[in-house]
Design a protein around this nucleic acid. Structure first.
Lengths: 230, 230
DNA sequence: CTCAGTTTTAAATTATTGTTAATTTTGTTA
DNA sequence: TAACAAAATTAACAATAATTTAAAACTGAG
């Protein structure tokens, strides 16, 4: 995975700090997003699914620790690396940070070299594990998660977000049945509450657009992505 | 995975440090092994395949960095988490550590709470990955609980939920007789009340689909899954 | 603010699965 | 082996779950 493909989200209420981080990380080639408090940070994370999130501990609305807990409680971010930003000497806070599920922390004032080293180190780990290729391909179906686009025997189709994510989830483990609860958790997130019929409707749209043959209903359990040949 | 099942290897030449680590980690329930230098550490790792290894940077025979590189070069340890132990202030060393493929580091003097927090955090990540495929297999029968599907001499059959769960239960302990009450509890749940004939009917359907030879009735007691050969 | 596209809900319909009840068969035991 | 209880069998029925449609609610871009 190239640096350009790596998304980092910076969450801090001090614009100066955000800028320092953005500057240094952009310099090395990462894509940087930002948000000014925990709540906004969480929605930003939902939107971009960044690879790494840097959270300031002290923030309005939802502090770093709480944000981290919220993220860790969410299936969608189980592989996301979380890093804390803390003022030097606040010793208590970084114990709490690790308890909340953080992967590392960095102290203010920020030293660019240390920052970049840490980030690189943390991301290195990601690379090995990142066994989810951005493109899934079967006979006459290509699923490209960079552009939220699929190609069905030559024809290019853009899928809306939820539809795409549902398809991507199912297709990531062909033949595995995903229970409705799991689908809910992975595609909609644990906090959102929507009816079960919503999943059905999205499946229906996918069957329409992608092809009925790919989707198998397992009544009472969930759905699975079926390989055409088998 | 329970804490008791998690193996941690501590490699350091200072017995005091080893003891501090061992004490704190054992306290939380982990299994702790130790070795006094890099070479011994490596053989110990080969013997126990620990989930996490804590390496001191400064060690005789093979220092931490070199040991880490040696471990990382070995397929068997590609999923092992490696953590470094370093004296505070040796800034250079932890850059080198990450380069060698470390996952994290901790500075001396060791603060127990920080140590345990870090270890927990790193292991959290491991837990998600450790998913064993839930497949039971006999001669000409494969029961795959990921896909709610069975294969009987080559032929794929999709089973409805209750039927599958009943089959899975019985097949999970071949030759063990499951009492009707037990089956009821496990497949239907304790709140639901249905007649005893319901089980019979499901068994019948399974005999039809999976093959009569697998199911043995124990009159007055329940049913068991019988291995064809035995 | 408005519009187009997306997402969710609701309700009628259809399909599948699970349960029951009536009947036959089997196995056990006196 | 007759008599009884338990289990198998069958088909009809009930319950549950999914599909389909259409329309409402929401969202973000301009």
């Amino acid at each position: 995975m190239k640096n350009q493909e790596i998304k980092i989200l910076v969450v801090d209420d001090e614009p100066d700090i955000v800028e320092i981080l953005r500057y240094n990380l952009t310099q090395v080639g990462y894509q940087v997003f930002s948000a000014s408090d925990g709540l906004l940070g969480f929605s930003e994370a939902e939107k971009n699914t960044p690879h790494l999130i840097i959270l300031d501990v002290m923030m309005p609305n939802l502090d770093g620790i709480a944000t981290c807990e919220k993220l860790r409680a969410d299936e969608r971010f189980k592989d996301t690396i979380i890093m804390f930003l803390t003022a030097r000497g606040e010793d208590y806070s970084y114990v709490a940070a690790f308890d909340a599920g953080a992967d590392d922390y960095i102290t203010k004032p920020i030293k660019p070299k240390v920052l970049v080293s840490k980030v690189k180190g943390l991301l290195r780990r990601l690379k090995g594990k990142q066994n989810s290729p951005n493109i899934i391909q079967f006979e006459d179906l290509v699923i490209d998660s960079d552009s939220y686009k699929i190609i069905v025997h030559g024809e290019e189709i853009n899928l809306p977000r939820k539809e795409f994510e549902l398809l991507f989830l199912l297709a990531s483990k062909p033949d595995k049945v995903f229970k409705r609860a799991k689908i809910m958790e992975r595609v909609w997130g644990s906090e959102v509450v929507v009816g079960d019929r919503t999943i059905d409707v999205h499946i229906r749209k996918l069957r329409e657009k992608v092809g009925n043959k790919y989707f198998k209903t397992v009544k009472g359990v969930g759905y699975k992505f079926k390989l055409p040949k088998s």
